[in-house]
Design a protein around this nucleic acid. Structure first.
Lengths: 207, 207
DNA sequence: AGAAAAATGAACTGATGCGTTCAGTTCAGC
DNA sequence: GCTGAACTGAACGCATCAGTTCATTTTTCT
């Protein structure tokens, strides 16, 4: 029956994920993965072509998982503050999660070895949010709520404010992640600056 | 005489830099470095304790070199557009340079192995610029040119816009770097949004 | 020139790791 | 209960690599 084989495969992927994300590609050994699965090394090689294949599978799965955590809030054109805050919050929750940071670190470090995985990672978070945000800004622009000369540029600037300095420090290991208070403060400041910068007067934040 | 020994040391560091930044820590072998220096392996070990020591030395040197490329433009309080543009441009030139991107990739990937080097890298670019910018914004705030509730937050948002999405794509290998036109456009958009967002009316950009 | 310091190159140790092989065992399905 | 596919565990081949050793040569300093 294939249900047992399937379970083995899942078990291998789970162990491989743990070990690859913990030690990086070079630091992970196939023996360690087999031991952690737990599965014989021969079994491991009957499910996957080799180390690279297994790594790619793990990363793809993790990308998919991360993308699924994205909270796609409804965006009401009528209330830009709430809509932008919701988009920003979903983005921040995603990219500052421990899972995402770990994934980013591993992929960035191994980017010369696996150039195609960088694209997969980008498409599993930043890109969809960017598209979503651009579409929303386009709405705002068409409906004359905001004056946005270039929707793409503005969307990038907005997401940049959210990922900027703090995220880089997280990647460099200088920061664990963002606390709830930090997230709220960051999102609030970014939304505020963004809306004011685009001439949205009704920004009622008291800061 | 020690001038020859010094030259050997320089030669080793140069070769080590090339190879470490090209292949990463794990992908670089001491034999390859010795061969590229060119120097006998024993000589290599007479200059450095071991692989980790050599790596740390290389990274420190590279950090120092990068920091020295930073163009510290004079910041005139009277013309925020020019001053912010200058700061932004220096920052963008630094963090999007091929050398910096390579360094970031290697250090981020090896961050679990060398946690202290992350701090060194952050202090060799982002941090000094952040401090400089914060000081300048403080000036602007004190002189009532701009209303800035929290200088630190605003500075981070500004730098974030410059490093945001594009930089992440560079780290992930999805982009080579920034063209001159892209840099100008990015800096202009960020300065514009930032100043407008802080109620600076005389922003005369025609965008 | 001669002594001392440094560099060379080549071999060697010890360890790790990828991937394979194979004889024996387990287990689902008929 | 039998059959065949999947799994096991342990060993093996082969390669790479960090770091050491040492006899020989080159260079530097006195």
């Amino acid at each position: 029956m294939s249900t047992v084989r399937f379970a083995k495969r899942e078990s291998i992927l789970l162990a491989a994920k743990r070990i690859f994300l913990l030690h990086g590609y070079a630091g992970a050994s196939m023996e360690a993965i087999a031991e952690a699965a737990p599965v014989a090394k021969a079994t491991l090689y009957s499910h996957f072509e080799g180390k690279q294949d297994l790594f790619a599978a793990v990363i793809s799965l993790q990308c998919e998982a991360l993308l699924n955590t994205l909270a796609w809030a409804h965006t009401e054109v009528r209330d830009p503050v709430a809509a932008l805050t919701a988009i920003a919050r979903a983005f921040v929750d995603l990219i500052y999660s421990e899972d995402a940071l770990t994934l980013y670190r591993v992929i960035i470090g191994e980017q010369l070895h696996f150039p195609e995985l960088g694209g997969r990672v980008y498409r599993s978070g930043p890109e969809p949010v960017l598209r979503r945000l651009s579409a929303y800004l386009e709405d705002l622009s068409v409906q004359k709520v905001l004056a946005i000369p270039d929707v793409g540029v503005s969307a990038r600037l907005f997401l940049g404010m959210l990922k900027g300095d703090e995220h880089f420090r997280c990647l460099l290991g200088q920061k664990e992640g963002l606390s709830e208070a930090e997230k709220i403060s960051l999102v609030g400041a970014a939304v505020d600056l963004f809306l004011r910068g685009h001439g949205y007067a009704e920004s009622l934040c008291a800061r």
